[in-house]
């Protein structure tokens, strides 16, 4: 299981990376931490012509919180983000999700943005990013555009990124103080691939749900938001019955894929349970009594 041959270029900035992608063409791939890409090379299901290594690009390693937004650069490792005080304060849901994403030695190398760009339909970080209503910043030579998380994930390992674009940054707007969060995951062993995850944010106001976000992974070709359930919850008092109904609602229309980790039927059942638990935990953390 050795990687096929490829060319390698290390860049020192986002601009250099974008230029390299333009120059090297469509078979070049970005290498950040490599924790998703290198296993694919090892089994030769990917064969890029070149890898453009952004790991040392100083303008891509940032983790900053300002004006209520958390910004994470494409080269910031998962470990540095989950242990960053700005992150745990501004986006605790993301921090929780990262802490479940692969073993510690993987998170030492793997990047948050790399996991988003990889778009594994079962992965933790995309679910948290989607629930958080994050914005993805795509850069190409001389231009940049913003893509909402809702639009970014398009299918298994497919995103809205276009040829020549580098996913430069993820920006997460901070939810108000008092927001409750919860991240739930089912995997077979403690460290094996995630099967289903649920990411929830809840903000209460005077005993009723003011704002709520629910996202799941492992139930579709891409991470999904549960818009209908969010709608049903908003403005309501979070009783256990209501949360259980919302969890049912969150998964009612899903037709998850089946694979060796779980059938579609099973994924749906587990997702319902995880959403209910995540809603319960998040509501409790938000000061509610559910």
């Amino acid at each position: 299981m050795k990687a096929p041959p490829f060319g390698y270029r290390r860049v020192s900035s986002a601009a250099e990376a974008a230029d390299a992608l333009r120059e090297l063409g469509s078979d070049a791939r970005i290498l950040a931490g490599g924790q998703s890409l290198l296993p694919m090379l090892s089994v030769r299901i990917a064969s890029p012509s070149h890898l453009v290594d952004i790991g040392r690009a100083d303008d891509l390693r940032h983790i900053t919180a300002d004006n209520g937004s958390l910004r994470i650069g494409a080269a910031a490792t998962q470990w540095s983000v989950e242990n960053d005080q700005a992150t745990t304060a501004a986006a605790p849901l993301l921090a929780d999700a990262i802490s479940r994403a692969g073993q510690v030695p993987i998170r030492h190398r793997g990047t948050v943005v790399g996991s988003i760009a990889h778009a594994d339909p079962s992965a933790e970080i995309p679910a948290a990013v989607l629930a958080s209503g994050a914005t993805l910043i795509a850069a190409s030579t001389g231009s940049e555009r913003e893509i909402s998380a809702d639009d970014f994930f398009q299918g298994p390992y497919m995103t809205a990124l276009e040829e020549g674009e580098l996913l430069r940054e993820v920006r997460i707007d901070r939810w108000p103080d008092g927001t409750g969060h919860a991240f739930e995951e089912f995997s077979h062993s403690h460290e094996s691939w995630p099967v289903v995850t649920a990411a929830v944010l809840v903000l209460l106001n005077g005993g009723t749900i003011d704002r709520v976000a629910i996202a799941m992974s492992g139930v579709d070709g891409r991470p999904v938001r549960a818009g209908q359930a969010e709608h049903e919850l908003t403005g309501q008092a979070p009783t256990p019955e209501l949360l259980a109904e919302a969890a049912q609602s969150a998964t009612r229309d899903l037709e998850p894929f089946s694979d060796v980790f779980g059938s579609g039927r099973y994924r749906k059942r587990v997702a319902t349970a995880l959403v209910r638990r995540a809603l319960t935990t998040a509501t409790t953390r938000a000061g509610g009594g559910a």
């Binding site: 089994v43 062993s189 403690h190 460290e191 094996s192 691939w193 694979d259 060796v260 980790f261």
Partner: peptide, 24 residues
């Protein structure tokens, strides 16, 4: 070791063939 109905091995690596960790 799971073979699907078509005889294709569905657990070809440690990603799918899950071994207990210290937490299991």
């Amino acid at each position: 070791f799971v073979y699907d109905d078509d005889g294709v091995l569905q657990t070809p690596s440690f990603a799918e063939y899950v071994i207990p960790t210290s937490m299991d």
